[in-house]
Design a protein around this nucleic acid. Sequence first.
DNA 1: CTGAAAATGTTAAATAGGCTACAGTTACAT
DNA 2: ATGTAACTGTAGCCTATTTAACATTTTCAG
Lengths: 208, 208
Amino acid sequence: MATVYNHVFDWEAYLKFGMRRFFRKNESIYSQGTCGEGFYYLNKGLVRIVTKTASGKERMLNIVIPHQLMGVQSLDQKTHFTTAIVVKDSVVYHFPANEFRKLMVAHPELFKLFSKSVIHKMKILLDRINLNALTSEQKLALLLHNICDEFQNYEIPLCQHDLASCTGLTRITVYKVLKQWQEAGILEVQKRKYYIKKPDFLRNLVGR
Amino acid sequence: MATVYNHVFDWEAYLKFGMRRFFRKNESIYSQGTCGEGFYYLNKGLVRIVTKTASGKERMLNIVIPHQLMGVQSLDQKTHFTTAIVVKDSVVYHFPANEFRKLMVAHPELFKLFSKSVIHKMKILLDRINLNALTSEQKLALLLHNICDEFQNYEIPLCQHDLASCTGLTRITVYKVLKQWQEAGILEVQKRKYYIKKPDFLRNLVGR
DNA sequence: CTGAAAATGTTAAATAGGCTACAGTTACAT
DNA sequence: ATGTAACTGTAGCCTATTTAACATTTTCAG
């Protein structure tokens, strides 16, 4: 059940039909509860998707890398149930629902692309669900392993707090596990950035 | 964040284009890992969607009630990442990917229906993710509350084991909570079937 | 009708991970 | 440059859940 989140979905040809918009770090592209209209394609940058749970806590759902969609939930004019916050300055293309529907009539092959992108999203959500069945060590291992796949290197672009929010653990637990791994030489820290030294160890931990 | 899973998505008009198939209790409609081709619409019956986690445990993802889609994941000829097991004898309609794409060209309004159904699915997955942030009592409360919505009555169609698998708790924890609720008059048992007597209590617990 | 399998009831012990609290460091904005 | 905010390091206590272990009851297939 290896999950590689860096599939490229080739939307390039259709970008000219979208509305290009720029967002700076920490701006939100859309917010939970607001009414959306259409969806977004991330062309450049980095965005994280968070959601507020019933009990008011914020959880990070996933990180969107370029060439992925976000905000599909509100294609049918429903309210967003997540918030998209910009991590690195981003270029996104907005596709209003109506426009997109027209566009699809003209380009039926778009449906395949769209459904692929959405299914990919669903897979990510499913992975997040499966996370719960694991120990905290496994949760972190899986997360880091996936992140490395996404970014194709072994530098972890998230702070302890983010890792906690991603896994649903507390920062203290995250810290404890990371410390353990550091001592075992699985990770290394430089300038408060973690680097994975033994990716195989992580892979083993989650049985891949 | 009220989640009512019993929206009706009106696929009736299009069923004649699908392939009708019958399934008996405990048969599986599709299995994790096998390659799928298209998706299914549940017309009658009851189906549960389960998935194997990386660590090999089985988790129930959700229960599909009539008028919902399943198996959308493999619309693009990818392998299923869940298994659909029939709970009550079911009538389903299968829409092969190619057929459906053709169909959509002829009936563009189908896209709206399709996207609605898929987005609904995503919402269910998200709810399942948010479950983790809750206490075990809340997890169960939310689950039972949703199930009641789905079935429009207060009889719980799942055994302790199922409830455990749905929430990710152990059966013992489920048993403890249920016992507590029984003593408090929130539930009642008859012939090993649980009945919700005070739905408002559950609603309160999850802050709706 | 009967034996095995599934579901439930119950207890006790072990522990993982939560929460609190505070201190030291680094980053960044003005 | 400097003060504040964000991030990290660390300890200790506590309790909700898990694990393990068994007994009892019900279901159901052959």
